Computed example of a mutant assay.
Amino acid sequence: MGKLTAEAIVERALEIGDTEGLEAVTIRRLATDLGVTPMALYWHFKNKDQLTAGMAEHLVSSFAPKPADDRPWKEQLRDLTTGLIRTLRRHPCARGVLEQIDPAEVPGFLLVWDHALGLARQAGFGVEECCLIGRYLLQSAIAIADAPVHLRSGRSPEEIEELHRRKRLALQSLPPARYPNLVELADPMSRTFDEGFYDTFGVDLVLAGIEALAGSRS
């Protein structure tokens, strides 16, 4: 292979993390996969922490804010949120990577974090509120990205359909006088939603709350 780059190392690390879990990502494993000695990797990443930071930097670069963006704060905040969701869904190991890093070691993460705080301040929120908005958006993105896909992982279409059928029948068997809405909505409640609709509605719901609060402060 050609000259080994940090990007090639990180991309392979993410491939392993996505398919086998982060515990499978080691310097020795990467060296074997890339056909080099471990020392060749140490030239770019001295240890596992630096490698994880490099993985995070690569992940964040896909939705990092562009300079001189003069659009309204809510449009920019939406882009940050949807970009994070896309990244989390594209890379199953992304959540673990972002949870393990020291943000101070990942310039791209700091840039996104700083930008989100700045947008919240533009919206008129106080200091503590700005900090909480950033945390809530991160947790909301994680929840949105994870929920609609976990049921399908490792299961055949037939197995998924059988799971839906069992859940629907269980809800439909509830006493309708006590649980009228669960019984009526048993079919849609037992199924996963289209990802596009699920994501859009989830982001709309979260950002609508932020926008409504921002409006009450003006």
Rank of each mutant, 00 (worst) to 15 (best):
M1N: 10
A8F: 03
E15R: 02
G17N: 06
G21R: 06
G21M: 13
V25Y: 01
R29N: 02
R29Q: 05
A31K: 00
V36M: 12
P38Q: 09
P38I: 02
A40K: 05
L41W: 00
W43R: 09
H44G: 08
H44V: 10
F45D: 05
K48Y: 07
K48I: 12
D49L: 13
Q50P: 09
Q50Y: 11
L51R: 12
T52R: 03
A53I: 00
M55T: 03
E57W: 00
F63N: 03
A64T: 11
K66D: 03
R71C: 00
R71V: 01
K74D: 11
K74V: 01
R78S: 11
D79K: 14
T81D: 04
G83A: 04
L84M: 13
T87M: 14
T87A: 13
T87G: 01
R89T: 04
R89E: 05
R90W: 06
P92F: 08
C93M: 12
G96R: 10
V97Q: 03
E99T: 09
Q100A: 08
I101N: 00
V106P: 00
P107V: 04
P107E: 04
G108R: 04
L110M: 12
W113F: 15
H115N: 12
G118W: 11
G124R: 06
G126P: 06
E128V: 15
C130Q: 13
R135V: 15
I142P: 00
A143E: 06
I144A: 09
D146N: 09
A147E: 14
P148W: 10
V149A: 15
H150C: 12
H150G: 08
L151Q: 11
R152I: 15
H164Q: 14
R166G: 07
A170F: 05
L174A: 06
P175D: 07
P175H: 13
R178H: 11
V183W: 05
A186M: 10
D187L: 10
P188Y: 00
M189F: 08
R191P: 08
D194F: 13
F197N: 02
Y198P: 01
T200G: 11
F201V: 12
F201I: 06
L205S: 12
L207W: 07
A208I: 03
G209A: 07
R217V: 10
R217Q: 15
